[in-house]
Simulated scan of single mutants.
Amino acid sequence: MKTIGKFLKDARIRKGYSLLHVEGDTKIKKVFIESIEKERWGSLPDFPVILGFVKNIAKYLGENERAAVAILKRDYPPKTLSINPKPDVGSKFFWSPRLTFLVGMGVILVLILGYMGFQYVKFVSPPPLTVIEPKQDAAVKLSGVKVSGKTDSDATVSVNNQPVLVNEDGSFGVEIQIFEGTKEIVISATSRAGKETVVRRKIKPEP
């Protein structure tokens, strides 16, 4: 009983065609033709492609296409398949509820640690202090100078050693009197940890 490989090879030899000759006329690669003749299924594409190759080769060699297809279906797939008794699944990734839980806990832990770290740095660092008024080297009246700015809402602010009320948004403002000869206004903000930020403004008092 002829196999599909022998069926096509015998037909090719009867025609006196080489593999290269068949390749040139059918546009099917020589390596595929040879693999079909030797029935090396592992080196061939999927079955639908092999089926097309067999039909074209049989037609080209003047053989009955239906007979060739019938033989192919009888011989393919191979009767003996190489099966791995222990499939390698170690490299495959599976998402599981347990993994979801662990990832979720990890994210929550990172957020908590990040927040605690931020609060710690904020606690041990001097508070920010922005002085809006007066500007550096500003000309001011002796009758009164407006001092305003912004810091942390929980910081303690003083102007020339006098405490100033800080609003909930961290802003503050006060008007102070200065004396002739005063050349500097000192604004300080102190955190709950005792860290202090100081801004000095040079001024030019005018009568």
Rank of each mutant, 00 (worst) to 15 (best):
L44E: 04
L113S: 14
I28N: 05
G52F: 02
S96C: 00
D88L: 14
Y17T: 08
E37D: 11
R40G: 03
I71H: 00
L61D: 04
K30L: 13
W95A: 07
K55V: 11
A138S: 12
D75K: 10
V107E: 00
P48K: 08
V69I: 15
G106M: 08
L19A: 07
I132M: 06
R66A: 12
F47W: 10
E39D: 01
K73H: 01
S96L: 06
T26D: 09
L102F: 13
I36W: 02
I33K: 07
E23L: 05
I57E: 03
P78V: 07
G42P: 05
V103L: 15
G90R: 09
D137V: 08
L44P: 04
L61H: 05
L44I: 09
S125I: 06
L99I: 06
V121T: 12
M116K: 14
L99E: 04
I57H: 04
E65K: 13
I36E: 03
P45R: 08
R98M: 03
N64G: 03
R66W: 01
R40I: 12
V22S: 08
L19R: 09
L109N: 01
I33Q: 06
Y60L: 01
M116V: 15
K135T: 08
A70Q: 01
P78E: 13
L19P: 00
L111I: 15
V124S: 11
R66Y: 04
I33S: 10
R74N: 05
V49A: 11
K73F: 01
I132D: 09
D137R: 13
P78A: 14
G52K: 10
K59L: 08
I108W: 00
Q119Y: 14
Y17D: 13
P48T: 09
W41F: 14
T100W: 00
V103F: 12
I28H: 04
V89G: 08
L102G: 00
W95I: 10
P97C: 07
L61C: 06
F32W: 14
V107A: 12
Y76H: 12
F93K: 11
P48G: 09
D88Q: 12
R98W: 02
G42I: 05
V140F: 08
G114Q: 10
I57T: 06
L109D: 00
Y17K: 15
P126K: 09
W95C: 00
F118H: 15
R98E: 11
V31K: 13
P45V: 12
D75L: 08
I57P: 07
P128A: 02
Y120G: 09
L19C: 01
